[in-house]
């Protein structure tokens, strides 16, 4: 399961960096720097292309936050396609990502990840990462990771 992602620093406008205090998430592993968004962060966020704008939204729902939405950060593609979210108003979104993180492996993502946005009881948007059963390669790379994010125009 996706444990985090990173976006190249050049992909994030300065005003978003400042508005959400993302400077502390900037990492340098050589070459262009990146901004990391991890599931383990206290403040769990994800960048999302929504309504033609890049926004920073809360990633999923933790126990004690919203009683209206499922307590998770991911949702299965099958669940979405079989109407598992049909009782809620949801939007399909793209989570732009340069790299994904799973079981400690940082792997390259060319465009991004599919996600969906749902509103909680206070109309705050929360983003869920859409997952599908892992490819053989992904399972081997992550040593048995059974779910992988649905990538945009890419299959690894």
């Amino acid at each position: 399961m996706l444990a985090g992602m990173a976006l190249a620093l050049s992909e994030l406008p300065v005003e978003l960096m400042v508005q959400h205090g993302l400077e502390r998430r900037v990492c340098d592993r050589g070459g262009e720097r990146e901004v990391q968004f991890l599931f383990a962060d206290a403040d769990r966020l994800l960048p999302v292309w929504r309504n033609g704008r890049l926004q920073i939204l809360r990633w999923g729902n933790r126990r004690g936050e919203s009683a209206h939405l499922p307590c998770t950060a991911w949702t299965q593609l099958d669940t979405v396609q079989n109407g598992g979210w049909s009782d809620r108003a949801i939007e399909s979104v793209v989570v732009p990502a340069t790299m994904g993180l799973d079981k400690g492996v940082w792997y390259r993502i060319r465009q991004g990840i599919r996600g969906l946005v749902a509103l909680d009881e206070r109309d705050r948007p929360r983003v869920y990462v859409i997952c599908e059963p892992s490819s053989h390669y992904y399972q081997v790379m992550t040593r048995g990771g059974s779910w992988m994010p649905v990538l945009i125009d890419e299959r690894i």
Binding site: G31, E32, R108, Y137, Q139, V140
Partner: peptide, 26 residues
């Protein structure tokens, strides 16, 4: 084809994801 990889420690995976078949100098 991917400028983002410049300057980073990069490993190309083969053997269906099991092994590093090529690595950058980093």
């Amino acid at each position: 084809r991917d400028h983002f990889l410049h300057g980073k420690a990069v490993g190309v995976l083969g053997n269906q994801g099991a092994c590093v078949i090529a690595k950058s100098y980093e």
